[in-house]
Amino acid sequence: MTDLGPLIPRNREMHPEPYWPDYKTSVARSPNQPLLSLESGPSEETGPTFGHSRFGALDNNLILNWTKGAAPAVGERILMHGRVLDENNRAVPNTLVEIWQANAGGRYRHKKDTYLAPLDPNFGGCGRTLTDENGYYQFLTIRPGAYPWPNRGNDWRPMHIHISVFGHSFGQRLITQMYFEGDPLIPLCPIAATIRNRSQLDRLVAPLDMAHSRRLDFLAYKFDIVLRGRRQTMFENKLEGM
């Protein structure tokens, strides 16, 4: 199926509130004025592509990629896997998925992270891959630790992995976070709470997936990602002079 029509407009009810006082940084970083809503055009319906040649063999293996395979990271070994689909339930093949995360103690390898949990000398904390022809992706990594952050008196982030996805057009660009089934910190987190639609928040919680875990090696968590789709009919009008 070719991508012909405009992108389906974003339903912002399905997304977080931009202004959310319990997440203090959002207060001065959220627009006051309404967004200008327009039908997508070529700038939104096209997007960058990334050839396989730029990727290294360990790019989607966070247990080994920081040490280039020399030594494994500390932590609970997990497979994070799933499919990238669009709103029309079609697979999004060959698209870039990037992730970043804290180590097993909840510390990021970032110059600005000064949390007292130690860095793991064998863990960098980022990975990337392209989806296959069925939109499927996978990462081998460790389960990140929860960590405290300066917000209200004593806020902690639930265990989470940050995810960036491109799709096939710049208007599909999305960054989100994956949470873990059963984490008691999720209902306490003001960032998770920015998503007011409860069933939408549930879609960010990855279930334990024993069928894809490997005995004596790793557990698996499944995380599907849905990007904006495109309207496709045989009745696209070419309106002149609009």
Binding site: R10, M14, W100, H162, L204
Partner: peptide
């Protein structure tokens, strides 16, 4: 039809994932 996955903030450490050299 299924709705789009909701966004979440990129957070303070987005650079380690997207611009490792900068981070």
């Amino acid at each position: 039809h299924q709705p789009e996955t909701p966004s979440q903030t990129a957070g303070p450490y987005v650079h380690i994932g997207l611009m490792p050299t900068y981070a």
